[in-house]
């Protein structure tokens, strides 16, 4: 039997592997170079000194105080930005769908607006606003989470909106209310469990965004991990490359895990 189809499928899979492998190598090359760069000892030998320091947190804080401050700031920034983004966006978007459908376009427009306003532009306008923030709550780097919530808005909005589109919020809430539920119960017990994976994905995107943000922190003279990496680059290139590599790998792991979380939900829906 000829197997015309199988032959074509095989050709396609050869193409796929060639392309994926080729680009895989090209994209892994810099990562490998980073690894090599950070394990390069004197006279071409292997040395894990950089990584030893990296994992010895006490020593790390002592040797590279900027890095330690930056990491701490980024940690709090991640927590607060995710919290504020979700607290601000989820109830608003759900509420608008349920009760104020006329406002939907406006909320969408506002949420996606940061896409057309580059961070470098936002920072120009944020400078005077942050003068007031300093006046009211102080000048800590952690206050950046206000700005980061704005940056995360478009991505988080899209994720949550997509999640809500997949379910019929109105019917669900009408069903719940006809059974006697109040609005709070509708939100917590009915809507939220059904958009869990969308909320999760919005949170992950916010995490990645906050961990990677440099522009605003740097230009408002605040500290975060990226600012620290950049400053460290001037004195200790090896350590800054090591931190960069660790950050990239961590972000990859986060997103890879997320891809499973999202899929599982998807399959549940298909089989039910």
């Amino acid at each position: 039997m000829a197997g015309l189809r199988q032959r074509r499928a095989r050709r396609q899979s050869v193409l796929r592997w060639v392309v994926v492998t080729l680009f895989g190598v090209l994209f892994l090359l810099p990562l490998f170079a980073m690894l090599e760069f950070t394990t390069r000892g004197a006279g071409g030998s292997l040395s894990f000194e950089t990584w030893r320091v990296f994992f010895d947190w006490a020593a790390l804080g002592e040797t590279y105080p900027i890095l330690w401050t930056g990491m701490k700031a980024s940690f709090w920034l991640v927590l607060l930005s995710v919290a504020l983004t979700l607290v601000l966006l989820v109830p608003t978007v759900v509420w608008v769908r349920l009760r104020l459908p006329r406002l939907r376009r406006l909320v969408e427009f506002v949420s996606l607006l940061p896409l057309t306003i580059p961070a470098i532009v936002l920072v120009v306008g944020l400078a005077p606003v942050y003068a007031w923030v300093v006046y009211f709550v102080g000048g800590s780097s952690v206050t950046l989470f206000f700005a980061y919530t704005i940056l995360a808005l478009p991505f988080a909005y899209r994720a949550i909106d997509a999640g809500l589109s997949a379910i019929d919020v109105r019917t669900l809430s009408e069903a719940a209310r006809s059974l006697g539920a109040g609005w709070a119960t509708v939100m917590w017990k009915v809507v939220l469990p059904n958009i869990r994976s969308a909320v999760l994905s919005a949170a992950f995107l916010t995490v990645a965004l906050v961990l990677g943000e440099f522009t605003i922190a740097s230009l408002l003279n605040r500290d975060n991990i990226q600012v620290a990496i950049n400053q460290l680059g001037k004195s200790s290139a090896t350590m800054s490359v090591a931190v960069s590599l660790a950050a990239l790998v961590l972000a990859f792991a986060l997103l890879f895990l997320l891809s499973f979380a999202g899929r599982r939900r998807h399959r549940e829906r298909k089989t039910s």
Binding site: M1, A2, G3, L4, R5, Q6
Partner: peptide
């Protein structure tokens, strides 16, 4: 239709075996 291969067997249309004719 030619959109799937058969592992074995004959497909005759109008008196001609078309197993090797692409879709």
């Amino acid at each position: 239709a030619g959109l799937e291969d058969a592992d074995s067997g004959r497909i005759v249309v109008g008196g001609k075996d078309i197993a090797n004719v692409p879709a």
